[in-house]
C-alpha cells in the first residue's frame, strides 16, 4: 500500500481519536471537583470516538468496500452525549456534590432539580432506607 493521502488521513484520524479518548479519561481521573469531571469525558471522549469512527469509514472506502453506517453511531453519540451529561449533572446537584452554591435562576424561583427535591421530600428518607 502506497503512502497515499488517504492513508495519511486514516492514520491522522486514528491518532487524533486515540489522543482525545485518552484525554477524556485522564480528565476523568485527574480533575478534582465532581462537576469539573463532567467536562472531560462528555466532550473529549465523544470527539475521540467520532474520529475513530471516521477513520473506519475512510478505511472501508480505501479498501474498496465503502460503508457509511458508522455515521449512524457518530450521529447517535453526538446526540446522546449532552443528554447523559445533563442527567449526571442533575445527579450531582441532587446529591449536593457541588462545592459552590448554585446561583439563583435569572427569572424564576428555583432550579428544576431543587424544586423536585422540595416537592417529594417525604419520599426521600424512605428511598434512603431502601438503599
Amino acid at each position: 500500500m502506497s503512502h497515499g493521502i488517504l492513508d495519511i488521513a486514516i492514520a491522522a484520524a486514528l491518532v487524533i481519536g486515540g489522543l482525545f479518548t485518552l484525554v477524556g479519561s485522564i480528565g476523568l481521573l485527574k480533575l478534582e471537583a465532581p462537576m469539573a469531571r463532567l467536562h472531560a469525558p462528555t466532550k473529549a471522549s465523544t470527539l475521540g470516538v467520532g474520529s475513530i469512527l471516521l477513520a473506519s469509514v475512510l478505511y472501508a472506502y480505501a479498501s474498496g468496500a465503502p460503508s457509511y453506517h458508522e455515521l449512524l453511531i457518530i450521529a447517535f453519540l453526538f446526540m446522546t452525549a449532552p443528554v447523559s451529561a445533563y442527567f449526571i449533572g442533575k445527579v450531582h446537584i441532587h446529591l449536593g456534590q457541588n462545592r459552590k452554591p448554585l446561583p439563583k435562576p435569572a427569572r424564576d424561583r428555583l432550579w428544576a432539580t431543587e424544586a423536585k427535591r422540595e416537592e417529594d421530600t417525604p419520599s426521600v428518607p424512605e428511598m434512603k432506607a431502601d438503599a
Binding site: 463532567l38 453526538f78 449533572g89 428544576a112
Partner: peptide
C-alpha cells in the same frame, strides 16, 4: 442545551422550574 454541552468548556446542567433560565457549568 445540547449545543452548550458540546462546546467550549461548558455543560448545561439544569433548567429553572418555569423554564426561563438555564444553569450552565
Amino acid at each position: 442545551a445540547g449545543t452548550i454541552t458540546l462546546t467550549p468548556g461548558t455543560v448545561s446542567v439544569d433548567l429553572s422550574d418555569e423554564g426561563h433560565a438555564l444553569l450552565v457549568h
